[in-house]
C-alpha cells in the first residue's frame, strides 16, 4: 500500500449511503427499534450523525437532544439549534445541571482542584480545565495531565496534577457523560428508538470516551471514521459551516479547552495521517518523508497512539464473564 497525504480521502456520497443503509438495517431489523435518538452538542460529529439519521429514518423518527450543563459554552446550544432547524428536527432541551448537582459532580471536582489551587472558587468566576502537554512531536513528554485555572481577571495558572487529584477530577467530570447517557435512554425508551452514538474512530479507539457514558450506545455509525473523514462527510451532508469551522472542543470543563489540548496533542490533519500510517505498518522513514517530519517525530507519534490505545483498552471492554464451571458443594 502506498502512503500518501490523500490516503484518507473518501467518496462521501458512497460512504454516507453505506452508513444510511447500515443504520436502517441494524436499527430496524437487528435492534428492532423504530427510530433514533441523537445527543447533539453543536460539534461536527453529532451533526453528521443527526444528518445521517434523518436520511435513514426521516426527521419525524429522530429525536435530537441538547444536554448542556452550567459549564457548557452557550455557543454549543446555539449551533445545535441551527443544526436541528436545518434538518427539520424539533430539538429537546435537557439541562443536566440539576442532575449533576445531585451527583456532587461540581463539588467533588472543585474539591480536587482546590487541593492544588486553594484560591479556586467557581462561584467567584474561576474556571478550570485539564490538559496534556502539547509538543508531542518535538519532545518525549509523557501523557501526564496538568490542571489550568483561569482567574476572574483572565490570568492562567497551571500545575501538574498528582494522580489522586487527576482521578477525582476525571471521575467527577464523567458524571456529565453518564447523566447524558441516562437522559438519552429515557428518550429512546419513551419512543422505542435506539440511541445512536456520535464517537468517531479517534475518540473510540484512542480512548476519548467515558465507559458507560458516551460510549454506552446501541450503534456507532461513524466509529470507524477518522476525524478528518467526518469533516468530509459533514461537507457532503451540508452541515452548517459554522459547525464545520468550529475547533473541536471537549465542552466538559468550564475553561475553554480544545480536544487537541485535552487529549490528542496534535492537529487532526497530522494526527489522522500518522495514525493511519502506524495502523497500516508504514515504516517510520516513509511516513516521515510523506509528512515532512523527522523519523524521531513520527516515532513519538506512533508510541503515543499505541500507548493511548493500550491504556484505554479497558474503556472498550464489555463486562468479563467467568466461564469456569461452578464448584459444587460436597454432599
Amino acid at each position: 500500500m502506498q502512503f500518501t497525504r490523500n490516503v484518507l480521502a473518501l467518496d462521501p456520497a458512497q460512504e454516507a449511503g453505506r452508513i444510511v443503509q447500515a443504520l436502517r438495517r441494524n436499527v430496524l431489523s437487528v435492534l428492532r427499534r423504530r427510530g433514533a435518538v441523537v445527543g447533539i452538542s453543536g460539534g461536527v460529529d453529532s451533526s453528521v450523525v443527526l444528518a445521517l439519521c434523518v436520511r435513514a429514518f426521516g426527521s419525524d423518527k429522530v429525536v435530537a437532544v441538547m444536554m448542556p450543563d452550567k459549564d457548557s459554552d452557550p455557543e454549543s446550544e446555539k449551533l445545535a439549534r441551527q443544526l436541528a432547524r436545518q434538518f427539520e428536527v424539533e430539538p429537546v432541551l435537557e439541562d443536566v445541571t440539576p442532575a449533576l448537582d445531585g451527583f456532587g459532580c461540581y463539588r467533588r471536582r472543585d474539591e480536587a482542584i482546590r487541593r492544588i489551587f486553594p484560591e479556586y472558587d467557581a462561584a467567584r468566576g474561576y474556571k478550570a480545565k485539564i490538559v496534556l502537554p502539547q509538543n508531542l512531536l518535538d519532545a518525549g513528554v509523557l501523557n501526564v495531565f496538568s490542571v489550568t485555572i483561569v482567574t476572574p481577571d483572565g490570568k492562567e495558572r497551571t500545575a501538574p496534577l498528582p494522580a489522586r487529584e487527576f482521578l477525582q477530577i476525571v471521575a467527577a467530570s464523567n458524571f456529565k457523560q453518564r447523566s447524558r447517557m441516562a437522559t438519552l435512554y429515557f428518550h429512546a425508551e419513551r419512543h422505542n428508538y435506539a440511541v445512536v452514538g456520535t464517537a468517531n474512530k479517534n475518540e473510540h479507539d484512542q480512548g476519548f470516551i467515558v465507559k458507560y457514558g458516551d460510549a454506552a450506545v446501541d450503534i456507532k455509525p461513524i466509529g470507524r471514521l477518522y476525524k478528518t473523514q467526518v469533516y468530509q462527510l459533514a461537507a457532503h451532508l451540508d452541515v452548517p459551516e459554522a459547525i464545520r469551522r468550529r475547533p473541536p472542543t471537549s465542552d466538559t470543563y468550564s475553561a475553554p479547552c480544545t480536544q487537541e489540548e485535552f487529549f490528542f496533542r496534535l492537529p487532526f490533519e497530522t494526527l489522522d495521517l500518522l495514525w493511519f500510517a502506524q495502523e497500516h505498518g508504514v515504516p517510520e522513514a516513509e511516513a516521515a518523508r510523506v509528512m515532512g517530519l523527522t523519523e524521531a517525530q513520527v516515532r513519538r507519534a506512533y508510541h503515543d497512539f499505541v500507548s493511548k490505545a493500550r491504556t484505554t483498552h479497558y474503556l472498550r471492554m464489555a463486562p468479563l464473564e467467568f466461564n469456569e464451571p461452578q464448584v459444587a458443594v460436597p454432599a
Binding site: A139, V141, L142, N143, V144, S146, P160, L167, S307, R310
Partner: peptide
Amino acid sequence: DSTGVMELVAFVQTEFGVTVEPQEIV
C-alpha cells in the same frame, strides 16, 4: 500507564526527596 507515571513521579519525590519539574516528566 499515564496515571502510573503520575504515581511514580509522586513516589520519586517523597521516597528520594527530590523535586520533579513538569519538563522533566519525559
